[in-house]
């Protein structure tokens, strides 16, 4: 199989480059991550990428394969056009090869206060929540923070410091939507901002690439609806 992989090491002189690799590898049933590991173990130890769970739940190995943001560990090799071109996620600073600096992404996540705020005294047992109320959280809490959505979003590319991006906004809405949370007002105040929220123009790249099948655009739409309702 043939690969073209983005290489950059801050220590070696020179610009980032694309390196071609060719290895004997049976793609049947295998994923992009399997090939990256085979390349690293067999051909080039210096090829650098993140990985952990290798089953699409930890969100470590978001990369851009043939122009599309994916998780390497759940992306089948079969059917990919060769040479398979693998690049780091777009728009974030590259640390080395396929490893990007996610600091900005995590900062936006922290900014939405991604934790339940409820100042009532805690009851003896669980707080009750009906299955219908709980269903409001489905499609929100499953986010694995891989960054595929945010780094595919043109609005984030233009304003990475100021637009929170789809992942953070999805998490923002996850707590607004939680019947147990009492800080919706405060959360909406923070989001009511021409950049943080309103740079989303419904381009929907995020929905297109989310490896967990989530829909950040819809969640952002719901935040906007709540803001409108509140203003009326």
């Amino acid at each position: 199989m043939r690969f073209r992989i983005y290489r950059y090491d801050p220590e070696s002189i020179g610009k980032p480059r694309m390196q071609d690799y060719e290895i004997e590898f049976d793609p049947q049933g295998k994923k992009v991550l399997d090939a990256l590991i085979a390349l690293k173990d067999g051909l080039d130890e210096s090829l650098t990428f993140r990985r952990s769970c290798r089953e699409g739940v930890c969100g470590s190995d978001g990369v851009n394969v043939n122009g599309r943001n994916v998780l390497a560990c759940v992306t089948p090799l079969e059917g990919l056009k060769q040479p398979i071109e693998i690049r780091p996620l777009p728009r974030l600073p590259v640390i080395r090869d396929l490893i990007v600096d996610m600091a900005q992404f995590y900062q936006h996540y922290r900014a939405v206060k991604p934790y339940l705020i409820n100042l009532e005294p805690e009851p003896e047992s669980e707080r009750l929540q009906s299955p219908e109320e709980r269903a409001e959280l489905d499609g929100l809490w499953e986010c694995i923070l891989c960054g595929c959505c945010t780094t595919s979003c043109p609005s984030f590319w233009w304003n990475p410091e100021r637009f929170l991006g789809p992942a953070a906004l999805l998490q923002g809405y996850r707590f607004i939507a939680d019947s147990r949370d009492q800080a919706s007002g405060e959360r909406l105040d923070f989001l009511e901002d021409p950049y943080r929220l309103f740079r989303c123009h419904g381009i929907m790249n995020c929905v297109e690439v989310c490896p967990k099948g989530l829909n950040p655009t819809q969640a952002i739409g719901k935040i906007k609806t709540l803001l409108v309702k509140r203003a009326l």
Binding site: E122, R127, F175
Partner: peptide
């Protein structure tokens, strides 16, 4: 065990729910 699970619920863990609203 029970207090540890209730504590997680209070922290915000999105447990699935029964019809009566319990975990």
């Amino acid at each position: 065990a029970s207090s540890a699970v209730y504590e997680l619920e209070h922290m915000g863990l999105p447990f699935s729910r029964l019809d009566n609203g319990k975990i």
